[in-house]
């Protein structure tokens, strides 16, 4: 077993003399640093995507699940009466916390993005809207529809199920994609470090032969390589994660009208999560190098 507690303690404590036994390899070292940095940079964005998608899914799921809309489509002279009738029905419906008709100004604001702010609602056959807030217990949508049909002919209940489900599903998928991207990045780091470690071990077959001749154990030889690649990956990914986090700081801030893109980033304690990326990639590098070293040393014995 190449990796054991003693080995891990040795890796953390370090050994300057042992570190020197592996010849310096400038170009490979720079490539490993660069690749680790690039992967960490991408990992920050994948994390941000996941968190943002998660927040959107939660918000859409939570907010839309607790509201419904009653639409009144009636001739101009009957609209107000039907709104009152619908409000009366809603006020006696179990599970309805509150119901209120949107004002003309609110309806105008809803339509403003398409028709402009100076739209005269009276000139268009715009339906009247009632916002319904559900109590925690929820209401019986099918029963309410039947009552509204019977008592308010122009009323239609929309409990948002039709378009809430695909939106929440899309956001959840996006969150999942973010995590898959992170897993792929970790796998790519493992593959990259394994390849680099394999190349280094193969190039240093003579060094390994000399070390064995003077009594070095496989654990000692492996430790020298593992420590070197783990440290390189740690340094490279720390720089990459830092740059990625700084880049996230410069993303447009999420205001009151935050869309998905403007909300892409970290909030609150999640800003600390990118700190985990260098530790995660270094751990991946540690195990990948240990795996490569064990195979190489067996092959060279």
């Amino acid at each position: 077993m190449i990796l054991d507690q003693k080995m891990l303690r040795g890796l953390v404590a370090g050994d300057r003399q042992a570190d020197r036994i592996v010849p310096p390899t400038g170009f490979t070292a720079q490539l490993t640093l660069f690749a680790a940095g690039a992967m960490a940079f991408l990992a920050v964005f994948a994390l941000a995507l996941s968190f943002a998608a998660g927040r959107v899914a939660d918000r859409w799921g939570d907010e839309l699940a607790r509201t419904s809309t009653v639409r009144i489509v009636a001739p101009a002279g009957q609209a107000t009466a039907q709104v009152d009738m619908a409000l009366a029905v809603l006020s006696t419906t179990a599970g309805v916390e509150s119901a209120r008709a949107l004002t003309s100004e609110e309806q105008q604001a809803l339509l403003a993005p398409w028709f402009g702010a100076d739209l005269a609602l009276d000139s268009l056959p715009v339906p009247r809207l009632i916002e319904v807030r559900e109590a925690q217990s929820g209401f019986d949508a099918a029963g309410l529809r039947l009552r509204l049909n019977a008592e308010v002919p122009g009323a239609f209940l929309d409990d948002h199920t039709r378009w809430r489900a695909p939106l929440v599903s899309a956001a959840s998928r996006l969150r999942l994609l973010g995590w898959i991207a992170l897993a792929l990045i970790a796998a790519a780091v493992a593959a990259m470090v394994t390849l680099a470690a394999n190349a280094a071990l193969a190039a240093n077959a003579q060094v390994i032969a000399v070390l064995r001749l003077v009594g070095a154990t496989d654990g000692y030889i492996a430790k020298a390589f593992i420590r070197r690649f783990t440290l390189r990956t740690l340094i490279g990914s720390a720089v990459g994660a830092l740059l990625g986090t700084v880049a996230m700081l410069f993303m447009p801030s999420a205001g009151a009208d935050a869309s998905f893109l403007t909300g892409l980033g970290f909030q609150g304690a999640t800003w600390l999560v990118p700190l985990m990326i260098p530790l995660l990639t270094a751990s991946v590098a540690l195990f990948a190098t240990a795996f490569a070293a064990r195979r190489a040393l067996e092959a060279l014995s």
Binding site: V210, G215, A216, G219
Partner: peptide, 25 residues
């Protein structure tokens, strides 16, 4: 096992025909 062989080699000094060193040290 290989660790035991390494242990034995610490008690055996070997001077090789083609002397092998770590060239960077």
């Amino acid at each position: 096992n290989r660790d035991a062989v390494a242990g034995a080699r610490r008690k055996i000094g070997v001077v090789h025909q083609d002397v092998q060193f770590l060239d960077h040290l």
